[in-house]
Design a protein around this nucleic acid. Structure first.
Lengths: 189, 189
DNA sequence: CCGAAAATTAAGCATATGCTCAATTTTATA
DNA sequence: TATAAAATTGAGCATATGCTTAATTTTCGG
């Protein structure tokens, strides 16, 4: 017998793995329970339904993805560099971080009948968060000219792609941060 | 009544949409049939089972993703540029191309109990195809130094991310190809 | 216009799924 | 140690799913 709180955390960990591997619809509550070594009944003792497990994971992910707009606006280029450094460090040292990264990407591309999730995701939209910062960086001459949305998509698309590969093949060598910065940093600087 | 060949193509088109939206496991054969306006029975008249629909789509995707190694080795930098240009042009003009792009990415991250698919995907592994070309480019001084695998992951991760966003939000502005090239092209050139 | 071939359907079987619920075991506490 | 609270199980219901099959409709060459 395990204390309720621990069990719930364990179930969330297992659920994250299965959701990543098989997607929302392909994940059965039975499989989560089985991989956690408990009965289906217990799963539904801790979570009211399948959606709520998913939603809870999304909430955790959204929290992890939040950026500090205050600091970012103060030094866009430096902040972007630091953000990448943090992400890459975490990808190397903490497998569950990478998993959550991949999960959040999957979530973005999965249509789930849950308005709660849709609204949650809006607040986690990387482009929405970063576009004002990129604009600020452009005005300072730190970032190159061009559509900020495009720049954002390119930079964070690359980070996403790298994270995906890292989770799938853990010994994937990470690129240098400078390479990614070269995509967005002003050349004349 | 529709001629067999046309119907099959239509079913593949519909299946691609559903697979993208809900993933392999979340896609039901009934839904494919319903969205195509036919009965389940007819679906299984044209395809022996669900896996074979998926496999057929993967085969098409693999074919589209193949690169011309001969030409690429002759002019790595130019070829990379041209490849990106083609991809971006297609993304703008041909929605089904973008869909296939996203689908192939999903396929890479989905575990399906089908050894046929696993082996098929190896031949479509972008890194496996590009690493020799990047190496060649580095020897010529066209590409920057660094782990070719990392460079590959960064560049094609970015392209993937962009394609994803373009499919999800079709009016997403595409970045300039030069921005992406700056990630990999030698600075001293 | 006849009949074979092709296209299509509807019903149904076996199994998997989300979820409930009554019952049982374990733990903690007074 | 007695008892309430918490943890856990396992059977089971309703529905969804992959797929089969017999039967029906449509097409079209002779």
């Amino acid at each position: 017998m395990v204390k309720g709180d621990e069990r719930k955390k364990q179930l969330l960990r297992v659920a994250l793995d299965v959701f990543i591997e098989k997607g929302y619809y392909g994940t059965s509550t039975r499989e989560i329970a089985r991989k956690a070594g408990v009965s289906s009944g217990l799963l539904f003792h801790y979570f009211s339904n399948k959606d709520s497990i998913y939603l809870e994971l999304v909430k955790i992910g959204v929290e992890e993805m939040k950026i500090d707009t205050e600091i970012a606006m103060g030094a866009p280029c430096k902040y972007l560099f630091q953000t990448m450094k943090n992400v890459f460090n975490q990808l190397e040292s903490n497998p569950s971080f990478g998993k959550m990264f991949v999960f959040m990407d999957n979530v973005q591309h999965t249509v789930v009948n849950e308005k709660d999730i849709t609204s949650l995701l809006e607040s986690a939209d990387i482009c929405k968060q970063w576009i004002p910062i990129i604009l600020e960086g452009q005005q300072r001459g730190e970032f190159r000219e061009g559509n900020p949305h495009s720049l954002c998509v390119a930079v964070f698309g690359a980070i996403q792609g790298i994270a995906q590969e890292k989770v799938r093949i853990p010994n994937t060598p990470l690129p240098k941060i400078d390479w990614l910065m070269d995509m967005i940093v002003s050349r004349t600087k």
